[in-house]
Each structure stands twice: as C-alpha cells, then as structure tokens.
Computed example of a mutant assay.
Amino acid sequence: MIICLENGKQAVEKLASEGLVNAEAIQLDVTDEDSVRNARIEIGKKTDVLDILINNAGINADGIAEDATAASVENFKKIYETNVYGVVRVTTAFVDILKQSQEPRIVNVSSNMGSLALHSDPNSPNYGYKAFCAYSSSKSALNMYTIHLAYELRDTPFKVNAICPGLTKTDHTNFFGGDVVIAGQRIVKYALLDREGVTGKFISEELNPETGEIPW
C-alpha cells in the first residue's frame, strides 16, 4: 500500500504541474475493512457530499491463466476479494455521502469478459477466450451487483453503470492494448452523465461504438 500511495502522490504532482491543483491522494486498500473505513473518515473531514464514485480496483491474481478444470479456489478468492468484495466494501462505505449529491454517479469498471452472453455465443470472439476463468467470473459477479444496485436506486437521482474501458495498455495487461487516455475518457463519460443518462447498463464502446450497450 505504501507503493500505491506513493504512486498516487506522484500522480497528484503531475496533475498539479498541468494546472489541476484540486487533487489529493488518500490511502485506500479495498481488501481491508479498516483501510476503507479510514479513507471514508478522511474524506468525510473534507466534504459532506460525494458526487462520483468510480470503482476501478481490479486484479487478475498475478496474471495467472487458468482453464475451468484447473482453476484453484485460492485464485478465485484472491481475485474476488478485490474485484467484487472490494467494490461492495467501498460502495457501502460511501453511499451515505453519495446520497447527499444532487446527481450521484457510480461507475463500476467491468470488462466485456464478464458477459455471459458473449462468452456463450459461438459467433463472438469471447467464446474462445476462456483462459482467465476466475477473472471473467469476478466481472460477471460485479455486473450482477451493479444490476442490483441500480435497481435499488432506480427512483433516485443515482446513475449506476458497469463500464468496460476496453483492453488498455497498463500494468494490468502487461502494457498490451489501447490508449489509456481513450479508456479513461470512456469511464469519465459515464461518471458525468446528465439527468437523462442511462442507468443499470453494461457498456463497452470498444465492442459497440454506436450505443455502447452490450449484453450481460
């Protein structure tokens, strides 16, 4: 976590050098209840209102590729701890101040690899890509949580969506994929939806450039 916090501080310095001075790094380990609680306390000291929550933390357990018949329970546990339970921890910790916003937005960063429809369709590229069994299923679980969250908040100003940024060139993918800026723009777009924006949707503009929506 010390390394992650230092990375955050470096990012803040870079933003400040570009004139974006209203940014601050706060330590948050989504797998640790105390860390999430402390982050909530620290942010609560600075504001009573949270407009946007982007649940972006995600891992693939050191990049291990496992077919379904070889997948280990430990690998599943490690991935779910961050990709699913971490999102639940953070969302439930911050939902109270999100409710104070006039237009609260929750973006759960998902992946088209979590689409059951695409993975079961022989005509889809996803059909033949089954190497990351635990990771894919964690994103499917995240998608279901997103559906439930959007349903519970359907009669409120909340907009809650699962967004796939596309295969992106980061350390998560061993720097293979598309431009980080484009992926970031896809996420920000749904974090800044207006009152007429969608909610309870699964979006991948990489796969569907026209409307963005893809099947669960």
Rank of each mutant, 00 (worst) to 15 (best):
Lys99Asp: 12
Glu103Met: 10
Arg105Val: 03
Asn208Arg: 07
Glu42Asp: 13
Ser137Ile: 14
Leu116Arg: 08
Arg40Tyr: 10
Leu192Val: 05
Leu142Lys: 09
Ala131Ile: 00
Pro215Phe: 09
Gly200Gln: 08
Glu42Pro: 05
Arg40Trp: 08
Tyr190His: 15
Lys169Arg: 15
Tyr129Glu: 09
Lys130Ser: 07
Phe202Pro: 08
Cys133Arg: 01
Arg40Met: 10
Val109Tyr: 14
Ile2Tyr: 04
Glu24Trp: 00
Leu192Glu: 03
Glu42Gln: 12
Leu192Ile: 01
Leu149Gly: 06
Ser35Lys: 06
Asp29Ile: 03
Leu207His: 12
Tyr85Lys: 04
Ala57Tyr: 07
Thr156Asn: 05
Asp32Glu: 07
Leu207Asp: 15
Gly212Arg: 04
Asn38Glu: 13
Val90Met: 02
Lys159Gln: 09
Ile163His: 12
Ala16Phe: 00
Gly128Leu: 06
Leu118Pro: 13
Leu20Val: 13
Val84Ala: 02
Thr92Gly: 00
His119Val: 12
Ile43Tyr: 04
Gly177Cys: 08
Ala162Ser: 15
Tyr135Asn: 06
Pro157His: 00
Gly19Trp: 00
Tyr80Glu: 00
Tyr151Trp: 05
Tyr127Cys: 03
Leu149Ile: 05
Ser111Cys: 06
Glu205Lys: 15
Asp155Tyr: 03
Val49Gln: 07
Val73Lys: 12
Asn123Leu: 06
Gln10Ile: 00
Phe94Tyr: 05
Asn126Asp: 14
Glu42Trp: 03
Ile41Tyr: 07
Gln102Met: 02
Glu205His: 15
Phe76Cys: 14
Leu116Pro: 00
Lys201Tyr: 05
Ala11Asn: 09
His119Glu: 11
Val30His: 11
Ala61Trp: 10
Val49His: 01
Ser35Thr: 08
Glu24Ser: 05
Gly19Asp: 02
Ile43Pro: 07
Pro209His: 10
Gly197Gln: 01
Asp29Met: 01
Ala65Glu: 12
Leu20Arg: 13
Glu66Ala: 12
Gln100Lys: 09
Phe158Asp: 04
Gln185Asp: 15
Tyr135His: 08
Met1Arg: 08
Ser17Thr: 00
Leu149Lys: 04
Ile187Asn: 06
Ile187Gly: 06
Pro165Cys: 09
Ser138Cys: 07
Lys9His: 03
Val109Leu: 13
Val30Gly: 13
Ile59His: 06
Glu213Pro: 13
Glu196Phe: 02
Glu81Leu: 10
Ala117Glu: 14
Asn208Trp: 08
Pro125Cys: 03
